[in-house]
Nucleic acid binder design. Sequence first.
DNA 1: GTCTATATAGGGATAGAC
DNA 2: GTCTATCCCTATATAGAC
Lengths: 181, 181
Amino acid sequence: MPKEKIISKLIPVFRHYGYEGATVSRLSAATGLKKASLYHHFQGGKEQMAEAVLEYISNWIEENVFAPLQSNKLPRDRILAMTKGIDKFYESGQTPCLLAVMSLGEADNLFHQQLEQSLKQWLDTLAQIVEETGVEPQQARQRAEDAMITIQGALVLVRVTKDTKVFQRAIANLPQILLPD
Amino acid sequence: MPKEKIISKLIPVFRHYGYEGATVSRLSAATGLKKASLYHHFQGGKEQMAEAVLEYISNWIEENVFAPLQSNKLPRDRILAMTKGIDKFYESGQTPCLLAVMSLGEADNLFHQQLEQSLKQWLDTLAQIVEETGVEPQQARQRAEDAMITIQGALVLVRVTKDTKVFQRAIANLPQILLPD
DNA sequence: GTCTATATAGGGATAGAC
DNA sequence: GTCTATCCCTATATAGAC
């Protein structure tokens, strides 16, 4: 099986169960590969699998969230394009955020730097767009933070309420949060 | 050791590591009790420990978050009192939310109903206060959801950025989110 | 109520055949 | 590249002395 295909099957396990809950048995079941085969592809074991998953997702976000943000359309349209990417990425809130999940327990010790960098990049990118609309840097930063807070918070609420409408309403608010009235 | 004391020492382990990461060894270390002693107090094992922790926290919230909300002061003052409870409860964002953490992996299968009910109660309580200020029920509900989204999202951001100011700014916004202008 | 010691299952990981 | 078989360790849980 091509490595990319394997990684794509590992992803939902880490997102749903977290690092400690993502046992090699579950990862094996999800990929259809026996444990030894997984270790053939990832000699660094589970830790390397998680790293591969983090990198894969980082790239996915780059293409589906950042790229739309950096076109030369109007800020509002760029943000709308981003919300489409976000809705797809989180399956309308039905799939947890790897960043949020990996910032708990042992995983946080192992991957904190990468998580922090990913989030920082996302915040910086958002803040920059907002600045382009004429907002002061500090204000822009706060709006970017508020947007990320909304995304992450909505994901938690949907996990518990099972009501995806909450998520969709929340991300539909993103333009209003980010852009000056 | 009194049971309440034991539970209070179990709490940070579940909050920080999640259900799967909260091993009996860690729970033992945190309480200072050997494994067998823990099983003496909680014959249902780890699952019962988690249940006890959920109940304990539910009561704590009742006293420190709901009670302030139900005084007969002005809505704005009640909400400000709640934010104090919230800030204390989450240690300015440095301690994860049990609700968010337990809504992942196996724990979600075991405790989903309790989690859902806790969140629902919190949302209902908030929405009711907002209604008292003359907001339409549906609008009030949305504001309550937005408040919870803000709290939960800020917790995630702080975990990753280690910047508690983000959390404090977020909960300082709660009155603005909940109350009509 | 707390402990030491132990049982049993499942965790991560490796050897070596195919 | 994938498998079966196996290793060692840790996980949850229990028995029984004190």
